[in-house]
Write a protein that binds this DNA or RNA. Structure first.
Lengths: 362, 362
DNA sequence: CTGTTAGCGCGTTCAG
DNA sequence: CTGAACGCGCTAACAG
C-alpha cells in the first residue's frame, strides 16, 4: 500500500521515521541490547508503518550464521527422499533455519558441484545422502569441513570417513526379510536390484563388491540376503540376483528371466520400490499370482502396499525420522559439539501382511 | 589439507597470496573487467592453493540478487509436491539458482510466516501452491510483491489477484473422467474428497462453495463432476459426495457409508491419492471388486496404479512440468517482463486401463 | 540506556 | 589495464 517497487526499507529509514539513532532501531528490531519501552514502541510502529523487513543477508554477513542448511539427495521426486527432506526441514524449521535442497541424480559430479554451491552460500551445515562409496571419492565433503561447515550423512554411510551418519541397519533388515521367506519354506529366493554391472559376477565376493561399489545400501542389503542364506545352509545361486541397470523396466526383464529358469525362484525380495513394481509386472506377465505362486517382500513401505491384492509384506523405513534425526545431529555439530563419526541406526520394521505364503511342496 | 577451522579465505587473502591488488583478484575471480593473462594465472593459482570460495552472501549484498528462489508447498513428503518441487529446482538449477523449500501443512498462518522468511532472505522470486482461496486472504503475497519479489502460483490459482498461475484444468479433467464413467453406463457415481465441512450441504451451490472455500482445486473438480452430470441429465445426489475431514481413514468411512446405501454408487471418482486408497480399502471391506462390482477412476497417476489388479484408470498430472513451467514464468518475471496475471494451463491425460467396466444392468 | 564508529566480503566507481 | 576508496544493510564493540 506504500512503496511501489523501490528498494526495500532499511533500518536507517526506520530510525529516521521513528526519530531515533540507527542502533536504537537496530537493537529493537534485532532483538538484542537494551532500549527503553517508549522508544521501542516508536521504532516498532515506524517499522511496520513503512513495511520494514530485516535483510537476512546483511545480518548473516555480520553474524556469520545464515540460518540455512543445505540438503543434497539423489532425487527429491523420489517419495523416500521427499519424506527424509520433509523430516529434515521440519526439524530445521523448529530451530529457526530453512532448507535448500539440491538433487544430483546420483551423479558424483553434480554432488560435488552442489556441495560447492552450499559452501559458497555459507550454509550453517549440510546433510547429504551421498553417492560416494569410499573416502577417496568424498573429498568434496572434507572440503566442506575445511570451510568449517559440519556435514552429516543420511541414509548412506561412507566407511573410512569419520563422519556422523544416520541410517537404518540395511543388512539386518534384509536378513530379517529373507529369513522370513526361508521360514515359510522357500529356498529359491530372487534378489531384485543387484549390482548395476553388465556382466554377472559368479562369486559371492565379487557380487557383493560390485553392489557396494555402486551404493552403500545396495551392498549392505545384498550382504543381509547372503547372511540369511548362509544361516540356513542354502547355496548361493548367482542367477537369482538381478544384475544391470537399476530401472523398473530392467527389473521386469530380469525377473522374467528368473521366472523362466528351469528351477525358478518361489519367492522374491525386492530392495526398492521400482524393483518391486517391476517384479509385480513380471509376475503379471508370467500369469503368476503373488503369494499363491510366488511370495514377495518389498522395501520402503508405501500406502498402496495395503490396498494391493493381496496386501504386501514390507520392510518399513522411518523416512521422516531419518530426516529429523539427521537434522538433530547436524545442529548439535553446528552448536559446537564435535563428535567422532558415529553411526546412528534407526529401527526398521517388517510389516507382515499377506504376500508371503508357504513354499510349494517339491 | 591446509587450514584447520579458521575463517574461510577471503578475496583479499588471495590477493596477498598472489601479490596483486584486491580488485585485480576480485576481477578475475568475479569474472568481470579486464586483467592480464599473467596476473590472471597467478590469481587463479593462489586461489585454489588456499582453497578460496567466493562468499555468495557478500556478493548478493552488492549485486542485490541472491540466485535463490523460494518455494512454498503444503507438504514436501507428498509425492505430488515432491514432483513439482523437483521440476522447479531443475529449471532453477539450469539458470544458476538454488531452491529453498518450506512446507506449511496447508495452514495459512505458516504460509504467511514462510513468505516473510523468504522476503527476509531476499530470494529472487517465490513460487507458491497457496492455501489462500481469495484475494482477501492473500495479503502476504502482495506484501512480497511490494518488496519487489515476483510471485507465481502453482497448482492452485487465486481468483481476483492479478497473479500468474501454472495449473491444470481441474474442472475439465474431472468432467472428462466422470463422462467416461457415464459413457460406461454409470449413473450413480460417488465423488470422493468433497468439502471438509461437518454438515452435509444439500444444495449444489452450497456444496461447491464449501469445497471451493477449502481449496481452489477441490471446487474446480467438484464443478467438473457436476458439469458431467448436468450434460447427461443425471440428477445430483448430495449423499454421493464425501464430506468431512480429508484423510484416508475418513474416505474409507464415507465410501463405506455410500456402499451401504439402498441405492449405492456403481462407480467412484477419487480426486486425490489418499481418497483413492481409502476407497480401495472400503471396497475391500465390503468384499466388492474393482471394475467387476464398482468402477473407479483416480487422480494423480502413480507407478503402482499399473500393478494393481486390475490396473487403474487414472488422470495423469504433469507434476514435473508444472514445476518447470512455473519456474520459467517466474524467471521471466525476475528478468523484468511484467505480465498480466495469466493462467498457464497444462494438459492432463486420462490413462485408460481396466478399472472402468460397464455398469450393471438394472 | 543511547548514539557513534568500525567492520563483514564483495562489486563498482574513479584516478593512475 | 591496475590499485585505492566507497557502499550494500546489518551487528557489535565503544564511548557518552
Amino acid at each position: 500500500m506504500t512503496s511501489e517497487r523501490s528498494a526495500p526499507p532499511t533500518i536507517s529509514e526506520v530510525a529516521i521515521e521513528a526519530g531515533v539513532g540507527r542502533s536504537t532501531a537496530a537493537r529493537t528490531l534485532g532483538g538484542y541490547g537494551y532500549v527503553s519501552p517508549e522508544l521501542r514502541e516508536r521504532v516498532l510502529a515506524a517499522a511496520d508503518r513503512i513495511g520494514y523487513r530485516a535483510n537476512a543477508l546483511a545480518r548473516s554477513m555480520s553474524t556469520g550464521v545464515s540460518h540455512t542448511i543445505g540438503v543434497i539427495v539423489a532425487d527429491l521426486a523420489n517419495p523416500f527422499f521427499g519424506g527424509v527432506v520433509r523430516g529434515i526441514s521440519d526439524a530445521a524449521h523448529e530451530r529457526g533455519s530453512d532448507t535448500v535442497v539440491i538433487s544430483t541424480n546420483e551423479h558424483l559430479s553434480e554432488e560435488v558441484a552442489a556441495t560447492n554451491v552450499l559452501i559458497d552460500k555459507r550454509v550453517d551445515g549440510i546433510i547429504i545422502a551421498s553417492a560416494a562409496v569410499d573416502a577417496a571419492s568424498a573429498t568434496h565433503i572434507e572440503q566442506a569441513r575445511d570451510h568449517g561447515i559440519p556435514v552429516v550423512l543420511v541414509d548412506r554411510a561412507i566407511p573410512g570417513l569419520g563422519l556422523d551418519a544416520v541410517v537404518i541397519d540395511n543388512r539386518a533388515a534384509a536378513r530379517g526379510a529373507v529369513e522370513r521367506l526361508i521360514a515359510a519354506g522357500h529356498r529359491r529366493i530372487g534378489f531384485v536390484w543387484g549390482p548395476p554391472v553388465p556382466e554377472r559376477p559368479r562369486r559371492r565376493r565379487e557380487m557383493i563388491d560390485a553392489a557396494a561399489r555402486s551404493l552403500w545400501t545396495d551392498g549392505e542389503r545384498l550382504q543381509g540376503y547372503l547372511d540369511a542364506l548362509d544361516d540356513e545352509g542354502i547355496v548361493f545361486d548367482a542367477d537369482l540376483v538381478m544384475v544391470g541397470e537399476k530401472t523398473e523396466a530392467h527389473a521386469l526383464q530380469e525377473v522374467g528371466r528368473m521366472l523362466a529358469m528351469t528351477d525358478p525362484p518361489t519367492a522374491l525380495f525386492c530392495t526398492e520400490t521400482d524393483a518391486l513394481t517391476g517384479s509385480l509386472r513380471a509376475l503379471r506377465e508370467a500369469r503368476l499370482r503373488v503369494a499363491a505362486d510366488v511370495s514377495l517382500i518389498g522395501f520402503d513401505d508405501s500406502s498402496w502396499a495395503t490396498v494391493m491384492e493381496p496386501p504386501l509384506t514390507m520392510i518399513e523405513q522411518p523416512m521422516l525420522a531419518l530426516g529429523t534425526r539427521a537434522a538433530e545431529v547436524l545442529f548439535a555439530a553446528v552448536e559446537g559439539q564435535d563428535s567422532r563419526g558415529e553411526l546412528h541406526t534407526l529401527d526398521t520394521r517388517l510389516i507382515e501382511r499377506e504376500s508371503v505364503a508357504p513354499a510349494p511342496r517339491l
